[in-house]
Amino acid sequence: MEQQRLDAFQVIADPSRRQILYLLSKDSLTINALAENFDMSRPAVSKHIKVLQTSGFISIEDVGRERYCSLQQDGFKDLQKWLEYYDAFWANKLQKLGNLLNEKAKKE
Protein backbone atom coordinates (compact mmCIF):
# COMPACT_ATOMS: atom_id res chain seq x y z
CA MET A 1 0.00 0.00 0.00
CA GLU A 2 1.29 3.41 -0.92
CA GLN A 3 1.85 5.49 2.19
CA GLN A 4 2.39 9.13 1.36
CA ARG A 5 4.40 11.02 3.92
CA LEU A 6 2.20 13.87 5.15
CA ASP A 7 3.44 16.90 7.04
CA ALA A 8 2.21 17.52 10.57
CA PHE A 9 -0.41 20.05 9.52
CA GLN A 10 -1.90 17.72 6.92
CA VAL A 11 -1.97 14.87 9.38
CA ILE A 12 -4.13 16.74 11.86
CA ALA A 13 -6.19 18.56 9.22
CA ASP A 14 -8.38 15.45 9.11
CA PRO A 15 -11.23 15.51 11.69
CA SER A 16 -11.16 11.74 12.23
CA ARG A 17 -7.46 11.81 13.00
CA ARG A 18 -7.97 14.72 15.37
CA GLN A 19 -10.72 12.73 17.07
CA ILE A 20 -8.36 9.77 17.48
CA LEU A 21 -5.76 12.03 19.09
CA TYR A 22 -8.38 13.48 21.45
CA LEU A 23 -9.46 9.99 22.48
CA LEU A 24 -5.85 8.99 23.07
CA SER A 25 -5.17 12.13 25.07
CA LYS A 26 -7.39 10.63 27.76
CA ASP A 27 -6.00 7.12 27.71
CA SER A 28 -4.12 4.57 25.65
CA LEU A 29 -6.63 2.52 23.66
CA THR A 30 -6.64 -0.60 21.56
CA ILE A 31 -7.33 -0.25 17.86
CA ASN A 32 -10.66 -2.02 18.39
CA ALA A 33 -11.66 0.33 21.19
CA LEU A 34 -10.78 3.31 18.99
CA ALA A 35 -12.77 1.92 16.05
CA GLU A 36 -15.91 1.71 18.22
CA ASN A 37 -15.99 5.51 18.33
CA PHE A 38 -16.38 5.84 14.57
CA ASP A 39 -19.07 5.06 12.01
CA MET A 40 -16.49 4.25 9.36
CA SER A 41 -15.21 0.77 8.66
CA ARG A 42 -12.51 -0.80 10.77
CA PRO A 43 -10.01 -0.73 7.83
CA ALA A 44 -10.71 2.99 7.37
CA VAL A 45 -9.93 3.61 11.04
CA SER A 46 -6.80 1.49 10.71
CA LYS A 47 -5.67 3.62 7.80
CA HIS A 48 -5.94 6.80 9.87
CA ILE A 49 -4.09 5.09 12.71
CA LYS A 50 -1.36 4.11 10.26
CA VAL A 51 -1.02 7.74 9.10
CA LEU A 52 -0.77 8.92 12.72
CA GLN A 53 1.82 6.27 13.48
CA THR A 54 3.92 6.97 10.35
CA SER A 55 4.01 10.68 11.17
CA GLY A 56 5.01 10.11 14.78
CA PHE A 57 1.81 11.27 16.48
CA ILE A 58 1.10 7.88 18.02
CA SER A 59 2.92 4.67 18.80
CA ILE A 60 1.49 1.18 18.74
CA GLU A 61 2.57 -1.49 21.20
CA ASP A 62 1.54 -5.11 21.30
CA VAL A 63 0.35 -6.04 24.76
CA GLY A 64 -0.71 -9.66 24.82
CA ARG A 65 -3.04 -10.12 21.90
CA GLU A 66 -4.11 -6.49 21.82
CA ARG A 67 -2.52 -3.57 19.95
CA TYR A 68 -2.45 -0.44 22.12
CA CYS A 69 -2.21 3.06 20.64
CA SER A 70 -0.66 5.91 22.65
CA LEU A 71 0.18 9.52 21.92
CA GLN A 72 3.76 10.12 20.95
CA GLN A 73 5.47 13.52 21.04
CA ASP A 74 7.49 13.36 17.81
CA GLY A 75 4.59 14.33 15.55
CA PHE A 76 3.71 17.32 17.67
CA LYS A 77 7.25 18.63 17.52
CA ASP A 78 6.86 19.89 13.93
CA LEU A 79 3.89 21.99 14.97
CA GLN A 80 5.69 23.19 18.04
CA LYS A 81 8.72 24.08 15.92
CA TRP A 82 6.64 26.27 13.63
CA LEU A 83 4.91 28.05 16.50
CA GLU A 84 8.23 28.65 18.23
CA TYR A 85 9.76 29.81 14.99
CA TYR A 86 7.00 32.39 14.43
CA ASP A 87 7.07 33.55 18.02
CA ALA A 88 10.80 34.30 17.84
CA PHE A 89 10.45 35.65 14.29
CA TRP A 90 7.88 38.27 15.23
CA ALA A 91 9.63 39.25 18.46
CA ASN A 92 12.75 39.93 16.40
CA LYS A 93 10.94 41.83 13.63
CA LEU A 94 8.94 43.98 16.04
CA GLN A 95 12.16 44.91 17.80
CA LYS A 96 13.56 46.08 14.45
CA LEU A 97 10.40 48.06 13.79
CA GLY A 98 10.77 49.64 17.23
CA ASN A 99 14.32 50.72 16.46
CA LEU A 100 13.24 52.32 13.18
CA LEU A 101 10.34 54.13 14.81
CA ASN A 102 12.60 55.31 17.61
CA GLU A 103 15.02 56.86 15.14
CA LYS A 104 12.15 58.50 13.35
CA ALA A 105 10.80 59.93 16.60
CA LYS A 106 14.22 61.37 17.48
CA LYS A 107 14.56 63.12 14.14
CA GLU A 108 11.24 64.88 14.47
Binding site: A8, F9, Q10, I12, A13, R18, L21, Y22, L24, S25, D27, S28, E61, V63, Y68, S70, L71, Q73, F76, L79, Q80, W82, L83, Y86, W90, L94
Partner: peptide
Protein backbone atom coordinates in the same frame (compact mmCIF):
# COMPACT_ATOMS: atom_id res chain seq x y z
CA UNK B 1 0.12 41.37 16.64
CA UNK B 2 -1.80 38.10 16.67
CA UNK B 3 -0.70 35.33 14.35
CA UNK B 4 -3.14 32.45 14.46
CA UNK B 5 -5.40 30.12 12.53
CA UNK B 6 -2.84 27.35 12.04
CA UNK B 7 -4.47 24.00 11.45
CA UNK B 8 -2.49 22.73 14.38
CA UNK B 9 -3.96 25.32 16.69
CA UNK B 10 -7.04 23.20 17.33
CA UNK B 11 -4.70 20.58 18.67
CA UNK B 12 -3.10 22.87 21.23
CA UNK B 13 -5.26 21.56 24.11
CA UNK B 14 -3.70 18.18 23.41
CA UNK B 15 -0.16 19.56 23.48
CA UNK B 16 -0.95 20.99 26.87
CA UNK B 17 -2.41 17.74 28.09
CA UNK B 18 0.64 15.94 26.86
CA UNK B 19 3.14 17.67 29.09
CA UNK B 20 1.98 15.93 32.25
CA UNK B 21 -0.21 13.43 30.44
CA UNK B 22 2.23 11.91 28.05
CA UNK B 23 4.56 10.47 30.68
CA UNK B 24 1.54 9.11 32.51
CA UNK B 25 0.18 7.32 29.44
CA UNK B 26 3.58 5.93 28.60
CA UNK B 27 4.19 4.72 32.13
CA UNK B 28 0.83 3.05 32.19
CA UNK B 29 1.53 1.22 28.98
Amino acid sequence: LVHRGFEGEQMLPIFNLMNPGWAHHMTKL
